[in-house]
Design a protein around this nucleic acid. Sequence first.
DNA 1: CTGAAAGCGCTTACAG
DNA 2: CTGAAAGCGCTTACAG
Lengths: 340, 340
Amino acid sequence: MAKAPRGKSVTIHDVAKDAGVSFSAVSKVLRNAYGVSEALREKVNVSIAKLGYTPSMSARGISGGRTFVIGVIFPDMRNPFFADILAGISSALERTTYQMVQGIVQHSTEAALVQSMTSMQLDGLIIVGSVSNSSSLSALAARIPLVLIGHHLPEVSAFDTVNNDDAESGRLAVRHFVENGYRRIAMLSLDSANGTVIQRREEGYMEAMKAADLGNNIEIVRSPQNLREIQVAAQRLLSGPERNDAIFCWTDYVALETLSVAGISDLSVPGDVGVIGHDNTMYCAFDQNSLTSIDQSGEQLGLQATRLLVERIEGRQKAEHFLVHPRLVARRSSSPLKTV
Amino acid sequence: MAKAPRGKSVTIHDVAKDAGVSFSAVSKVLRNAYGVSEALREKVNVSIAKLGYTPSMSARGISGGRTFVIGVIFPDMRNPFFADILAGISSALERTTYQMVQGIVQHSTEAALVQSMTSMQLDGLIIVGSVSNSSSLSALAARIPLVLIGHHLPEVSAFDTVNNDDAESGRLAVRHFVENGYRRIAMLSLDSANGTVIQRREEGYMEAMKAADLGNNIEIVRSPQNLREIQVAAQRLLSGPERNDAIFCWTDYVALETLSVAGISDLSVPGDVGVIGHDNTMYCAFDQNSLTSIDQSGEQLGLQATRLLVERIEGRQKAEHFLVHPRLVARRSSSPLKTV
DNA sequence: CTGAAAGCGCTTACAG
DNA sequence: CTGAAAGCGCTTACAG
């Protein structure tokens, strides 16, 4: 088990020697601490640049200071929508001195990832689409500044949340369908007890259906996130004598699969069936999809979450909850029925 | 700048006290070091479990030991192919004690990310699709065990590489087109000086074209990774009297956009034009795309890269270079011309 | 087989 | 305004 050799890196002591000052002086310059003369700061900065010094995150972490690194946890890497969130976080971070590392829940569990990230002494954590419950998240928030994206919780005070108005998403989809002449509007949802994001969308869907006097047409099918099961669910909604004429899908990927099932079943979209997705990911605009979708502005979500997290790290205690408003981007898949 | 409070975490000392041994004994158990009796190990493990102790990565990093964390750097989060690589890395890591954090090059540069990750004292680094040059990568490899995915370099010895046989990818696409009756086969490539992966694919494409006596039909258009530019490039290949009847695209996203452009231009795929993509991402199978694509097995790439990296960390010095063989997955977008 | 000592690169009080 | 001391939680030699 010989260790691969690593070059020695330049430390605060090297900088101090080069600048002809004490190493504590260097530390102060680094942290913008009080009581450093301009002259000293100048000298130190010159040496830092000359030697290419960069602070060791481990040393900072261990000595109780900030590491200036935050962690962002994503549920998976397959939904291109998450890239938008990441873009928002990145651009918000550009204005600060913080950096970020990502963790992606794939094989490992969210809990394992969280625990490995806290052991890194990160300054804060953003979790996207957490599946943890309220109490374990509050416990986590006691140890590290925390912001959640996509987790509607009644009244949490230990951490901040940033959310799309998911009930509004459901309403937007139904209203748009209704305006365009669709009546038998189903929702293809996710089989998940924890996903309150999904629940809100379902609530909005049901609310708008009732408001349009279509309460009797409410039909929600919940499928796991698995291609085969999604196909079966879509097929079910698209067959039989009482076939639906419109389907609101909880995410674009499911909507694209619904288009695929419709195509295989020789149903035309629109005409036989209208489809709306969610997230307005980059695949929606392709001519072969031309998928109407709800845009929840991942960039805004990321931006606001970052802002809140930095505020938390700098000392804010009172919880804040930010809501982003979705908008519908209309394309061919939900065109007015008469026109077709 | 008040610091948000953090709960004290349990340390090696707490464990030692609880188990009634010295703290160095605990450290030894943790590291599976020599000379620990079974009895002592037992006691310590019981206390570790009881107290829920987890080692501080910062402390490990600073004291020169392993952190048991590796970093993986991706060029972006938008290509679903990278999720396959990640899956391979995850499953390879499951059998080890290593964990991983991801870094995604989006707004920040690859260099900035690398530098922030090295300051975290990670045990090793996997970089996917690096745009750095050979010499700076060798310099990096002197400081930290390094494996590159998707970077063909003539003869590097400072680090390992894992690659798809990209020249073979190009050959596979051309041969398949030729077998199915296509002749005017163009390649829609990437405008990138550094991407040797792309260059290999171009080489394979040209080689196979010549081998099929179609050297005069060679046409490579290079476009930046930008939707508008890709559209223009695809339009160019699909218009004019000498319109191409087949296009090999360097990645699926570009191929899907090509399908879209063909649709808008009222060209049918196949029939008027055949299309092949690369990476066989999950969108290819949708009926509305039914896109033939080259599968380079991201999972294998990730798996092998991880294996090599762990070997490096444990002391291997001699470079290894692993090649994965691609296969073509045929779908409707490249069906035989006669049949159509 | 077990433990006490030194040190990693920083930060945070505390003295000058 | 500047510096010397203690300590963060570990690992790595080195003694018992």
